[in-house]
Design a binder for these strands. Structure first.
Lengths: 227, 227
DNA sequence: TCCCTTGTCGTCACTTTGACGATAAGGGGT
DNA sequence: ACCCCTTATCGTCAAAGTGACGACAAGGGA
């Protein structure tokens, strides 16, 4: 068995929508290389630990979110020989979508963690350490694509949400604005996308809005349209 | 740096369409574990070798196809602690789409390689070694999905092809039959999908058909519909 | 109470799809 | 040469879905 010496890690792209924009959880690196730069949270895979288990462990460490109901999916694996100046490190990137919790980021690490607007990061390829700009780009593109044909936008919302709140997610992730009336029609008429809870809320102001819960569908037919 | 001892490999799902069906290139294992069973071709990543380079090297070794015009994309990484009985081996799976070349599989290895119908393999989770059934399932699902919103079907065709030949690809990969007239309309009216070469062929019998080449589009708007 | 804000329902023109008729243009057999 | 079989390609039509936008509903605050 050829055991080329290398490190295996997972990196996490934790996305949320707050203040009308898509934001990413980043760590400010306390040690070299890239000391002082922003980077995606991540860490090495332990012996006998599954890849997704590593990712969930990191997620819990960084956000305090340990629920297995958090959406977590593998994005891709990055293994260019010199992507880490310390040696060969291959990293499996995961995408996590979390609701905008009032939870302050529970950074038990000394390193400071914070939410950063995705748009700013995407615009500047040099802001992130390692090849994390590429990873972020791929992750955001995946998230954007999945909103089209899956009911995944609900993963950014609390368990009960209004149609407007859901629309806000689409607008933030896609960076465009959508017609509220057409969006409402589309969402409520796509079977299995959302199901009404029966109660209403006025938390968004204006006329009381119905609350919905995520439906049973896993795919949207026909898909949402972006642009 | 925690260098947990593990092996890093790539496995390849090489797909083609022949005899009207989707087929996968498999290797019959000559050594334990799973001796005598079918498995996906694959091998270990070498020192200083990029992941995709490993995949292309394997592809060339197994099929003789070394062109960088062959479509190759990463599917996912599989790293369950006991997926390989010999020890911890993490595998990055790649999907390759190749045209139905008259090339006999150039198996320079002693192991015998051959094309096997994907449908049969998918139907029986125990036919393949390791977790290769899962990898194949994910790869085929990816291929099916990509035909919807990308012009990737052309990757299965020679550089010049007729609309019927392209339709045959869709029918084989999706396992359904499509209306030739509607398919023709859709393909020729989607901007950038295919572009006419100007010549015709009668190799499919019947009235001469125009030859097309793959167009410049990378995404199909709106997508092809699968049933 | 009036007004402002957001929610929800409707209408209408336009595009796309799915089903399918009809015609075009080779090749092979007689 | 002619008929027939095969596949290619164009056209038609109704149904479904989309984008734009008017209209009314129903709270909260000044």
């Amino acid at each position: 068995m050829d055991f080329v010496p290398l490190g295996l890690a997972t990196d996490l792209v934790i996305l949320t929508v707050r203040d009308g924009g898509l934001q990413v959880l980043l760590i400010r690196r306390g040690i070299a290389p890239y000391r002082g730069r922003w980077a995606l949270p991540g860490g090495f895979v332990r012996t006998d630990e599954d890849l997704e288990a590593t990712a969930r462990r990191e997620l819990a460490e960084e956000t305090g979110l340990s629920s297995d109901r958090i959406h977590l999916e593998q994005i891709a694996t990055y293994g260019a020989p010199r992507r880490d100046p310390r040696g060969r490190v291959v990293s499996v990137a995961y995408l996590a979508l979390v609701p905008d919790l009032p939870t302050p980021v529970a950074g038990t690490d000394a390193e400071s963690a914070s939410w950063v607007a995705a748009a700013d990061l995407l615009a500047d390829p040099a802001r992130l350490a390692f090849d994390h700009h590429q990873i972020l780009t791929d992750a955001v593109e995946r998230a954007r694509a999945k909103l089209e044909y899956s009911p995944l936008a609900a993963a950014f919302c609390p368990s009960e949400f209004t149609i407007s709140e859901l629309r806000t997610i689409y607008e933030a992730v896609w960076g465009i604005s959508l017609d509220p009336r057409n969006f409402h029609r589309k969402v409520t008429k796509t079977p299995g996308f959302v199901e009404p809870v029966g109660t209403t809320t006025t938390r968004d102001g204006g006329r009381p809005a119905q609350l919905f819960r995520r439906g049973a569908a896993t795919t949207l037919h026909p898909p949402m349209t972006r642009g």
